[in-house]
Amino acid sequence: MKGRCARGFSLVEVLVAMTLALLLTLSMTTLHARVLRLSLDSAAAADAQDALRIALALLEYELAHAGYWGLVPDAATIEGRRGDAIPLEVTVSGDCGPDWSIDLDRPLQAWSSGWPLECAPYAGAPPRGGMLVLRRVETGTAAPEAGRLQVQADFWGGRLVADADALPPGYEGRDLVARAYYVSPRAIGDVSRPALRRKTLQRGPRLVDEEIMPGIAALEIELGVDADLPGDPGHGQADAFVAPETATAPVVAVRLTLRSHDAPGLVLTRTVPLRNGPLP
């Protein structure tokens, strides 16, 4: 009896198998690419959200302490401020206007757009969105230091100094904080990417411009105003949130909105009550 001859695959069968294998490989490659792209997009969105959260947390802290003067409850009792009969004679390098840094009677200022300061923004580029100016003292005490603007005070009053004046008995010294937050269309190292920046008072005394967080597209500000009189229901709470230019009643809260550049459509908003009482 003759043995059976072994039969292999025909050319057509081999071509069909190769085609199916190629299609399967292409499908797997496409699926992998999509998964990788979704993973990268998710990571970028998470990074963008973290950037907004960090920036908002910083601004929230600054707002919560606006108008804080240490032992002194009111800036009106601090000698040497801009609104005093005899303002402190001090030159602040790069200041944003005459006695801008020592304008303690205005611990909070805000604008919806534009550049209202006399100093120049970073790289001379007009900012995106609003601007927020905050003044206060640091929460921790500090020793007298030459070239550092400080408020020395007790419970009844204080004075503004810049020449390491010795602390009078019963006084505490705190470094003065004066900052202007805005969004520049140019980040460091990438002129096509915006960034949150601030003008801030430092040792010198001098005002420097520093980058806080890249990838922030815009800063939007609304002021919560309280028109209720003391003793009225709702006094101390915001009746409405309005554009800074239209606020006429005392400000008790600030609503901040940050928009992301790296994740278009991503927006975070936070409302911050002012801890140190209504601000004019």
Score class of each variant (00 low, 15 high):
28 M>R: 13
68 Y>Q: 09
39 S>K: 12
52 L>N: 00
20 L>I: 11
29 T>F: 09
43 A>P: 01
24 L>I: 10
22 L>S: 14
22 L>H: 06
60 E>A: 13
22 L>K: 05
25 T>F: 10
36 L>H: 07
61 Y>N: 10
33 A>G: 10
23 L>K: 03
35 V>W: 08
24 L>P: 03
65 H>N: 05
41 D>K: 04
27 S>M: 13
50 D>M: 11
51 A>M: 07
17 A>C: 12
35 V>D: 06
17 A>G: 13
59 L>E: 00
24 L>A: 15
67 G>Y: 03
59 L>F: 03
17 A>Y: 10
46 A>P: 02
46 A>G: 08
26 L>M: 12
10 S>D: 01
49 Q>H: 12
65 H>K: 01
20 L>A: 14
56 L>A: 02
50 D>F: 05
13 E>K: 04
9 F>N: 09
51 A>R: 14
43 A>G: 05
52 L>A: 05
18 M>K: 03
38 L>T: 07
66 A>Q: 02
57 A>W: 03
54 I>K: 11
41 D>R: 10
14 V>Y: 06
24 L>C: 11
44 A>C: 04
52 L>C: 00
22 L>N: 05
11 L>D: 09
15 L>D: 08
30 T>L: 15
56 L>G: 01
43 A>E: 15
68 Y>K: 06
16 V>Q: 07
67 G>H: 03
12 V>E: 14
10 S>N: 10
60 E>F: 04
32 H>C: 07
16 V>T: 09
28 M>I: 12
47 D>R: 14
16 V>F: 14
21 A>F: 06
18 M>V: 10
13 E>L: 02
23 L>V: 08
10 S>L: 02
21 A>R: 04
37 R>D: 13
62 E>T: 06
47 D>H: 13
50 D>P: 00
42 S>V: 09
15 L>S: 08
48 A>Q: 07
40 L>R: 14
14 V>Q: 10
19 T>C: 12
50 D>C: 07
61 Y>S: 12
59 L>G: 02
36 L>P: 03
22 L>G: 14
56 L>F: 04
36 L>A: 15
49 Q>A: 15
57 A>Q: 13
42 S>F: 11
49 Q>G: 15
35 V>F: 06
35 V>Y: 04
51 A>F: 05
29 T>V: 13
47 D>M: 11
59 L>C: 04
13 E>T: 04
59 L>I: 11
36 L>F: 06
64 A>W: 05
51 A>L: 05
23 L>D: 02
39 S>T: 15
20 L>Q: 05
